[in-house]
Design a protein around this nucleic acid. Sequence first.
DNA 1: AAACTAATTTAGGCATACCTAAATTATATA
DNA 2: TATATAATTTAGGTATGCCTAAATTAGTTT
Lengths: 223, 223
Amino acid sequence: MLTHAAEDYLKSIYKLQEKGGKVSTGILAAYLDVKPASATGMIKKLKTMKLVRYERYRGVTLTETGKAIALEIIRHHRLLELYLFKALGVPWDGVHDEAEKLEHVISEDVEARMDEFLGYPTADPHGAPIPDKNGVVVQTASVPMTDLQDGQSCVVAEVSDNDSALLRHLGSFNLYPGTAFRVIEVAPFEGPFTIDIAGQQVVIGREVAKQIFVDEVQDPDNV
Amino acid sequence: MLTHAAEDYLKSIYKLQEKGGKVSTGILAAYLDVKPASATGMIKKLKTMKLVRYERYRGVTLTETGKAIALEIIRHHRLLELYLFKALGVPWDGVHDEAEKLEHVISEDVEARMDEFLGYPTADPHGAPIPDKNGVVVQTASVPMTDLQDGQSCVVAEVSDNDSALLRHLGSFNLYPGTAFRVIEVAPFEGPFTIDIAGQQVVIGREVAKQIFVDEVQDPDNV
DNA sequence: AAACTAATTTAGGCATACCTAAATTATATA
DNA sequence: TATATAATTTAGGTATGCCTAAATTAGTTT
C-alpha cells in the first residue's frame, strides 16, 4: 500500500497534468505546499514504483498505473464530499478539508455503500466529475465565466473547491452547480460582472469569476 | 495535535486501566502489537506531554488530561461504528476495523452530525457505552455469560468488538445486544452452554461465552 | 543472601517525509 | 558566446515511530 503522502503527490500530478502536460518539480511543490527539494525526493520514489515517468530537470508525468491510483483517490475524495454534503449536511465550504483527510483511509466497501446511497452520482457538490469504479471520467465542456459577454445566459457547471471563503461567498449568491444566470453587463478594463440570478442583481468580481465554469451558454437572440 | 500512534496508546492505556489499575509496559505493548521497547519510548513521550503518570519499571496511568483525550477517541470510535452500521449498513463484524482508521481523522463537526443523525445514542453495535461530549461514560453492571447457571434468563449487554470471526459467529445465532435468551444447561467440566434463543436451541462454546456479557439476569423461580 | 528468571529499559538502526543550504543544470539576456 | 538568473537537485539534518540486541532492574527461589 502507498503512504498518504505518495497518494497526495499522485493526485496533485494528475490535476496539474490535466491543464498542461508535463508537471515541473516547482509547480508540484508549490501546489502541495512543500519545498521543491521534498518534491524531488518523492518523485524519485514514485519513479522506482513505476507510478511516474521522470527525467531530471524535465518534469514528471503519470504512468497508466499511477493515473489509475490518482483517479481512485480523486473518486474517494469527490464521493466523500458529496456524501458529507447530502447525508450529513456538512456545508459545501467544509466538505473539501474533511474529505482530504478521509480519502486516504476509507475502504472500498464503505465507498461502494456511499455510492449506492447517493444513487451513483457523477459530480461532487462543486460540480467536479466523479470518476467511476474503473477510473472513467466524464468531463463536461465547460467554459470560464470570464469568457462570457453581455446578455449571455448559462448554468453554473463547476467552481473551485479548495477555497473555503470563496465557496461561502458564492453560496451567499446561490451560485451552486446547476444554477442558471444571465450576464447583464461586463464592466470594461477587466472589471466585474453584473449578473441576474433568479431575478436578483448581483456583482461578481473578476478574480471570483475566474473560479467559476459554466455550461449551456446561449446568446440573447437565441432565446 | 497528537499523532495517531499517541492517540492509540492513550486509548489502549485507558482500556487496560479499566480492568486492573496500573498498566505494565509489557501488557500495553502486547495489546498494541508492538515490542516493549517501542512502548517505553512512547510512554516517555506521553509523560513529557503530561498525559500519563509513569515511573520506570512501575507501569503507567493516565492523567486527567490523558483520560479526557482517550475518552474522546473512544467516543469517535464507537459513534463511527454505530454510524457505519446504521447509516451505511456495514456488517457489525466490519465496523471495528473501519472505525479504527476513521477515528483519528474525523472532525468534531462531522461527529456531532452523526451523533444527531443517530439520536444521541449511548451504545455502539457491540453494546459498548459511547462516552458523551464531556467524556462521561454510563457503564451498565453487566456480568460475564460464564457466571450464568442452568435456567437463568438474561439479555445480551455487550460483546467483544475486535474479533471479526467471533462477531460473525454470534451474528449467526442472533446474539446481538438486546437479544434475550435462557440458559437450558451448562455442561460440567468447563464445558459449553446450551441456550434457548427465540425458541431455537443453540450451543455456545466456553471461549465464546467469555466474550459475552449479559444484563437483567433472572432466576427461573422469579418468572 | 546469592543466583536465576522475567520484565523493562537503553542503545543503536531503519524508513518516511519533511526541512535548509549549497551545488548544479537549464534557460534567457546581453 | 559568455554571463546572469531561475529552476532543480544533492547533501545533510530533524522528528516520528517502529525494530533488534544488549544491559539493567525487579522479583522469586533456594
